[in-house]
């Protein structure tokens, strides 16, 4: 049996089991509505102006946060990875900041920045910074010294060594970091929206339908959308890695 057929069967069987569990009352249908209901609601979301506003807000914030994290993380990583003194000096601060989950900062940032989009963008950027930063630092140490020596033996200038040797060498690791950051940023964005009353965003959409209205069909429809989006983003990153970074198909830590 071809693999694609098995995947389809697995999906269909899962949906049927869920449907049966929900319809038979094994799980209460108001808590966990059957997929037939959820999927209809999911399709209906695309004609729901409120939902579309929420999605645009979340996705735009996501793009901005990921872009900022990359723009800050890569140069900072090059600096910290390349200059030993800076690395030593910053390491204690970094080690205490890194394990701090952004979500713990939600109350603080709301107090300081209010409940607008800047709050969730700031938090998501903070969270997304670390994977990019650490993968860049890690990648710098993995650059093959023989490549650098080869370039030096041909008297290649410092700048060209950076653009021609270092950056291509670290690119696969950085991309892995960005991919990881993408999902972290999404989690933080949605959590922040979820916890900040009166904002717009996918998290607030789910919160409103869930906590005030008790409409789990809408909650699950929103969840399916977020999962699908995260899935497609992941596929996109893997494809980009295959397409542009063929020389290093599997790169990266984390």
């Amino acid at each position: 049996m071809p693999s694609i057929l098995r995947k389809l069967i697995g999906l269909v069987v899962f949906l049927l089991l869920w449907e049966a569990a929900s319809r038979s009352g094994l799980v209460q249908a108001t808590y966990v509505p059957p997929p037939s209901v959820v999927l209809v609601k999911f399709a209906g979301l695309f004609g729901n102006p409120q939902f579309l506003t929420d999605v645009v807000s979340t996705l735009l914030s996501w793009v901005i946060a990921l872009g900022l994290a990359t723009l800050i993380g890569v140069p900072l990583g090059l600096l910290l990875g390349g200059v030993r003194l800076l690395r030593t000096v910053s390491s204690t601060i970094v080690e205490f900041l890194r394990p701090l989950p952004s979500v713990a900062l939600i109350p603080l940032v709301i107090s300081v920045l209010g409940s607008g989009a800047q709050t969730k963008i700031a938090l998501a950027t903070f969270a997304a910074l670390w994977p990019v930063l650490f993968n860049t630092i890690y990648a710098l140490h993995e650059v093959d010294p023989q490549l650098v020596d080869t370039a030096r033996s041909f008297r290649v200038s410092r700048l060209r060594r950076l653009t021609g040797v270092t950056l291509p060498s670290i690119a696969p690791f950085v991309l892995t970091g960005v991919r990881f950051s993408a999902s972290v940023a999404l989690i933080v964005l949605v959590s922040t929206e979820f916890l900040t009353g009166g904002t717009i965003g996918l998290g607030q959409f789910v919160y409103t339908w869930g906590s005030s209205a008790g409409r789990m069909d809408m909650v699950l429809a929103g969840t399916v959308f977020a999962g699908l989006f995260g899935y497609l983003v992941n596929i996109g990153f893997v494809a980009a890695q295959r397409r542009w970074l063929v020389w290093a198909p599997a790169g990266g830590a984390m």
């Binding site: 697995g10 979820f194 339908w209 008790g214 909650v219 999962g227 992941n234």
Partner: peptide, 29 residues
């Protein structure tokens, strides 16, 4: 490999769902 095929799409999807979104469901359950 066969068993993995059956659940692969579900796993890729489940991994991508931001977990806080399911909190309302767990709250009612």
């Amino acid at each position: 490999a066969v068993a993995t095929d059956y659940v692969a799409p579900l796993l890729s999807f489940a991994r991508a769902v931001p977990p806080p979104l399911l909190v309302p469901v767990f709250l009612v359950v």
